[in-house]
């Protein structure tokens, strides 16, 4: 941390013990930084997290704007020169599939669905999880008991099968239903985290101090406790997003997910299976890489956030 040296100050400090000088300097240098500014400062020190954030932001932009600017229609089937698709070329950077569809277009369009499924299911999980966890942790007693037993149930049943069945019955391959299913199945983790934080923060000295000046319960919950509990929740949410992107690919790969006439990374992988035997690696490789790199960068961001949002991490 660069400390601006004020000559007058330095003169005034000259006679003091070294330790004193250090504290005084820091006091002078410190700007008033809030929780988020401090977190951002710590986050910036995490290089991989920055790279991850960069790539992920890029992916989001691609998901939003990519399909608009691309020259190819992903549903147009011009037919390929070779059985199993054409290799990468200048017209088709990532090659084509067996029907001649551009794999690059496929990856870009797939980004839209994959990021949407990951992102929105994360938001649903976050909202439900925070609400349930906060109620459970703050009120305790039988409310806590009921809610936590529900959470236990979620952890006890093999979710994968539930997802497959639910996707088949409610989804019919729609993105929105997949988002709902993923979101409504991944909140229990968040709820547990939030509850645990609330249980310990409820006893925190500053909560007692807030009570002692007459702050109301609702205000204590949302203004005093929640902001202090939010760090681990945000980290868990990034991890849920990453795992839901993988889950989407997986479910689509099994043909339980996004309907085959839409392009998602999982669909692309599923269709590419047949081409792998012919040595046509590009059809599977690029969507696969898209999944891997996106998930990895989200996990790096999560890692960075874990350090950045933990108030015990000092600069």
């Amino acid at each position: 941390m660069a400390i601006p040296t004020d000559p007058a100050l330095a003169g005034g400090l000259a006679g003091r013990a070294p330790a004193d000088v250090a504290t005084a300097d820091v006091e002078v240098a410190l700007e008033s930084l809030g929780q988020w500014q401090l977190a951002w400062r710590r986050f910036k020190r995490h290089r991989m997290a920055l790279v991850g954030l960069g790539f992920f932001s890029f992916m989001v932009l691609v998901a939003i704007f990519g399909p608009i600017v691309l020259p190819y229609n992903p549903l147009n089937i011009p037919g390929a020169q070779q059985p199993g698709g054409d290799p990468p070329s200048l017209q088709h950077l990532f090659g084509t599939d067996d029907t001649g569809r551009d794999v690059f277009t496929m990856v870009v369009n797939g980004a839209r669905i994959s990021v949407a499924v990951g992102g929105f299911s994360m938001l649903i999980a976050g909202m439900v999880g925070v609400l349930v966890g906060a109620i459970s942790g703050y009120f305790g007693g039988w409310i806590d008991n009921v809610l936590m037993r529900i959470v236990d149930t979620f952890f006890a049943i093999p979710l994968l099968f539930v997802i497959l069945v639910a996707a088949r019955f409610f989804g019919e391959g729609q993105v929105s239903s997949l988002i709902l299913i993923f979101g409504l199945l991944s909140w229990p983790l968040i709820a547990r985290l939030v509850r645990a934080s609330f249980l310990s923060l409820r006893e925190a000295d500053f909560v007692e101090a807030a009570r002692a000046v007459g702050v109301k319960d609702a205000r204590i919950t949302f203004r005093h406790i929640l902001p202090n509990a939010i760090g681990p929740v945000i980290v868990a949410m990034t991890l849920i997003m990453a795992s839901n992107i993988v889950l989407e690919a997986f479910v689509s790969y099994l043909n339980f997910g996004i309907s085959p006439d839409q392009t998602s990374w999982g669909n692309a992988l599923a269709n590419a299976q047949s081409a792998l035997g012919l040595g046509n690696w590009w059809w599977a490789f690029f969507p696969g890489m898209a999944i891997a790199v996106t998930v990895m960068s989200i996990n790096f961001v999560g890692d960075g956030l874990r350090d950045a949002l933990d108030p015990r991490t000092r600069l």
């Binding site: 008033s32 809030g34 929780q35 925190a204 000295d205 500053f206 007692e208 101090a209 807030a210 009570r211 002692a212 000046v213 007459g214 702050v215 109301k216 203004r223 005093h224 902001p227 202090n228 108030p311």
Partner: peptide, 26 residues
């Protein structure tokens, strides 16, 4: 009714100044 008394008519200073203030509020 205690909410109106606490803080307004009787107030308390705690032992641990390091943890008695909320870290996320000025």
């Amino acid at each position: 009714e205690m909410l109106q008394v606490r803080g307004a008519e009787m107030a308390m200073i705690f032992q641990e100044p390091m943890t008695s203030l909320n870290p996320v509020l000025t």
